[in-house]
Design a protein around this nucleic acid. Structure first.
Length: 896
DNA sequence: TGTGACCCCTAA
DNA sequence: TGAGTTAGGGGTCACA
């Protein structure tokens, strides 16, 4: 058969030959995913062999053939246990020059680590020795998430057959897989194909559990088919065993590709794993499978025992959960990444995303009192549970999580699972290793680079000129770091090392400001510049296709190209970080420092030149520059609605104001575009990004506001408290309003307002829900479920845990059975900050009606904090924080 | 009251 | 023991 599929995840299976046969050992890759026609599939891919590469230390003249001592050593390698063959040599590029490299074929992938270690001690260099076998298939066959395949169907779900169906076993499978069809094929018959929207199935679930006994009281599940949008909802109650079995059979029935829920990584999945251990007692493997066998693997004992991609979900330390053939995508984690919400409860995120849909966020069950709620109002609890099973699907839909991950997977050429739960370096690896293999560049092991000594110097940040500045043009370098990498051909493979035999002449290299040398592209084009150029071209294609789709009103194409161009952007911007890191396989400490050195040189050069032209630079950060425009002092910075109306009705003065404003705006645009054009170089394109009618900063770097009037009309705020998630709502709201006054240059009104807001806090007139603070809390969970404070170790992350408000709150949460996960945000109220000699007193905030009515806060503390924040702004208008606290201005020398 | 260490979070 | 980077502001605590 032929088909197209979106790959969810893959694993490999070792098939050892019987002791009496002379068959070769076999390694089969299992690719799980969903076809374009909606069927789920397991591909059993044959023909790929596990290998790694070795090179001798030292070199010789290759023309002379392999010297005999080396032949001896190679024969020794060939004779090692589990080594099947040694082939070569092939000449590959290494950091020390061109080297002969032999390929070592081994019996099974799991033999590689031990052999790698042994050969290292015998003075071999090891290459391509830490690449997971499934990745090997993706790299060698140049696959991405979307593939076309041709093979032989060896099993169909609807057919009646024993669990160990002969056709499947003969095809190298372990048994009958939990998918619609199982197909056997050769690795040459799997090929990359054009991206298409895979009709994935998503399974979302929620548990309600007893706080007293840790048992599962009830559960709900909701399954959505992304192709049709169809949803089905399930309720489970009664005997706890039946609840777990019901969930498992629902998973198997709908066969989802993605499993989600809210905070399932840290709550529901660990709980199910624990309860399975308790409930299976005496039932053996059969019981475990029935209770928690959610994977696509055959239902066999061996599949339970696997360390990862097993039949039951598992996780190694704190990594994401994994199971065979499906991917776990926690809606909590996705929402957190996409939205950076101020608080992270399900109801808060639901309110944020669906403000008008009351049913999605009303709290009608007291979760902290679940046992009693379940005893007295089971139907309400069940309804609440069902809603919380459905919401994660709404959340994933709202933030387009699945489509965005699919786009990242498509661009980086990895399975969906890697895009969803993998690291940035895995995405980069996928592209770079492919190119390395193509160009015969040896692939070093992760961690083989020399350690960075200390930090490298980063971007340059110009002192900001405090105060209000009219008509500021913001220019920035387009994709600065990627452009520098392309422009100077920066790559692991182009860096000139003194140890290399071929030392290029000075005119054949780019010399960085810190005098690191990189070969010019004519000598050797770097892999990174090649990849970045390709990504830039891809992005341009998607952007123009996006424009086209918008013009045609094609919503599907629009969504697709937007997700793709965004994925390309994310990936491009990840390159610098990965290559500047200390551990990545293709890095060297000089790469990162050269990139930033060139960046600093670029931006500082522009600043000097622009200033030499006579234009003031009020601020600059890394790749941007804020330039004062040559516009008359008296030009209006805004036109009120009244003036605009008057002008429309023929008022000449009003018309003159409008004209002057429009003229100023035009001249700013001209100026900005002119600067951009004059200072753009081929690989350092400067763009006029925004025009501000007014810019304000109190004088601190990375903190400023501006009124954008080109190309859009909006307020721009960076760094200030309004942007921060650890501030309190009243402060945020106050600052926002203050900014409006500041930009309108209404100093008196600003000060009046600030004073009034500070006083309201000081006298506790502000509702308590407006002073809720939230901060993340770290800590290592040493035992799940977290029942007591001893189950979390805070000392690894905090030098004095109990002096930190968020830790004390986290401990309270744990003691009340509310659960804790490392990195979660905890909410609290400051109740007393003036107990001198000890940390401030804080109270856990639960957002209940009872707390809202009875709890009180330290008004003085909050007033001082607001005054401090707002005072930085009002100082520009001659009012200090302490003036704001007093409510009146202190007489100073200057007042006389 | 001032200072440094530690921590969180953001800009780029 | 996992893994994109650095620059920077500002809050809190402990201690002089």
């Amino acid at each position: 058969m032929n088909g197209r599929m979106g790959i969810v995840s893959g694993r490999y299976r070792s098939v050892s030959p019987g002791p009496t046969t002379d068959e070769q050992p076999l390694t089969v890759v299992e690719l799980f995913g969903r076809m374009d026609d909606g069927r789920s599939v397991c591909l059993l891919v044959h023909g790929l062999r596990p290998t790694f590469e070795i090179a001798p230390i030292g070199t010789w003249d290759v023309e002379q053939g392999t010297p005999s001592f080396l032949e001896d050593r190679l024969n020794h390698v060939k004779a090692l246990d589990h080594v099947l063959d040694v082939r070569g040599p092939v000449t590959k590029w290494t950091q020390l020059g061109e080297r002969p490299v032999w390929t070592v074929e081994v019996e099974q992938p799991f033999h590689v680590p031990a052999l790698r270690k042994a050969l290292k001690t015998q003075s071999w260099h090891i290459y391509s020795g830490d690449i997971p076998f499934v990745n090997r298939l993706f790299l060698d066959a140049d696959l991405g998430i979307h593939v076309a395949f041709e093979g032989e169907v060896v099993d169909r779900r609807k057919e009646d057959a024993p669990p160990l169906r002969t056709e499947v076993l003969q095809a190298g499978g372990a048994g009958r897989y939990e998918v619609d069809i199982t197909v056997r094929c050769e690795h040459t018959h799997v090929q990359a194909t054009e991206a298409f929207l895979v009709p994935y199935t998503v399974f979302s679930f929620d548990l309600e559990t007893s706080i007293e006994k840790e048992t599962v009281l009830c559960a709900a599940a909701c399954v959505e088919e992304l192709g049709s949008g169809r949803r089905t909802t399930y309720e489970f109650r009664g005997d706890e065993q039946d609840i777990l079995k019901g969930l498992t059979s629902t998973v198997l029935k709908h066969d989802p590709d993605i499993i989600t829920g809210y905070n399932i990584d840290n709550f529901d999945l660990p709980r199910l794993a624990d309860r399975t251990q308790v409930l299976k007692r005496g039932g053996g493997n059969e019981a475990t499978m029935a209770l928690f066998g959610w994977g696509r693997a055959p239902r066999l004992e061996t599949e339970l025992k696997r360390q990862r991609d097993a039949l039951t979900p598992k996780r190694q330390s704190n990594r994401a959960w994994n199971l065979s053939g499906r991917v776990v995508m926690d809606a909590w984690w996705q929402a957190r990444q996409a939205l950076k919400p101020r608080r992270e409860t399900l109801s808060f995120v639901a309110t944020l995303l669906f403000p008008d849909d009351e049913d999605k966020h009303k709290m009608d069950v007291d979760a902290s009192n679940m046992d009693e709620e379940w005893a007295t109002r089971p139907d309400e609890v069940m309804a609440y549970c069902v809603r919380d099973a459905e919401l994660p699907l709404d959340i994933l839909q709202a933030i387009q999580a699945v489509r965005r991950k699919e786009a990242v997977a498509s661009v980086a050429k990895v399975p969906l699972e890697t895009a969803a739960n993998g690291s940035t370096s895995q995405l980069i690896d996928s592209l770079v290793i492919r190119l390395a293999d193509e160009q015969n560049v040896a692939v070093p092991l992760t961690g083989s680079a020399e350690k960075k000594e200390g930090q490298i110097t980063g971007g340059y940040v110009h002192d900001v000129e405090a105060g209000l500045h009219p008509w500021i043009a913001i220019l920035d370098f387009k994709s600065m770091y990627p452009s520098i990498m392309i422009g100077h051909n920066i790559c692991y493979t182009t860096r000139v090392d003194p140890a290399q035999p071929d030392q290029p002449s000075r005119e054949d290299v780019h010399a960085s400001p810190d005098d690191v040398l990189f070969r010019k592209a004519a000598l050797r084009k770097g892999m990174v510049p090649t990849l970045l150029e390709d990504l830039m071209a891809q992005r341009d294609e998607h952007k123009s296709a996006l424009k086209h789709a918008k013009a045609n009103g094609d919503d599907v194409a629009q969504g697709f190209h937007d997700a793709m161009q965004y994925a390309v952007k994310i990936l491009m911007n990840s390159f610098y970080g990965v290559f500047a890191s200390g551990f990545y396989r293709f890095t060297h400490r000089d790469l990162g420092s050269s990139i930033t050195a060139w960046a600093r040189q670029n931006i500082k050069g522009i600043i000097t030149a622009v200033e030499a032209e006579g234009h003031g630079v009020v601020y600059s950060d890394t790749d941007s520059i804020f330039v004062r425009c040559p516009i008359p002092e008296d030009a209006p910075r805004q036109v009120s609605d009244e003036v605009r109306q008057a002008a429309a009705q023929g008022d000449a003065t009003a018309q003159a104001t409008v004209d002057a404003y429009e003229q100023a705006l035009l001249s700013m645009v001209d100026f900005g575009k002119g600067l951009a054009q004059r200072y753009s170089r081929e690989s350092a394109v400067l763009e006029f990004e925004r025009g501000l009618s007014v810019f304000f900063s109190h004088g601190a770097k990375k903190r400023y506001i501006g009124q954008v009037v080109w190309p859009t009309h909006e307020m721009l705020v960076r760094g200030y408290e309004t942007q921060r998630t650890d501030s309190f709502p009243y402060l945020t709201a106050t600052m926002k309003e203050i900014f409006r006054y500041a930009l309108a240059d209404e100093g008196d009104a600003l000060v009046d307002y600030a004073r009034q807001r500070v006083q309201a806090l000081r006298t506790n007139e502000v509702p308590i829900q407006d002073v809720v603070l939230a901060k993340t809390c770290k800590g290592r969970v040493v035992r799940t479920p977290v029942k007591s404070v001893d189950d979390v170790d805070f000392t690894k992350d905090y030098s004095r845990p109990d002096s930190m408000a968020q830790v004390r709150i986290a401990k309270q949460r744990i003691e009340q059975g509310l659960g804790f996960t490392s990195g979660m945000k905890v909410s609290y109220i400051v109740t007393n900050a003036k107990r001198t000699g000890q940390p401030m007193q804080v109270a856990m905030w639960l957002d209940t009606e009872e707390q809202t009515n009875t709890m009180d806060y330290d008004g003085q503390f909050y007033a001082e904090r607001l005054a401090a924040a707002v005072g930085r702004i009002t100082e520009a208008f001659d009012w200090t924080a302490s003036d704001l606290m007093k409510g009146s201005k202190q007489a100073s020398l200057f007042d006389y």
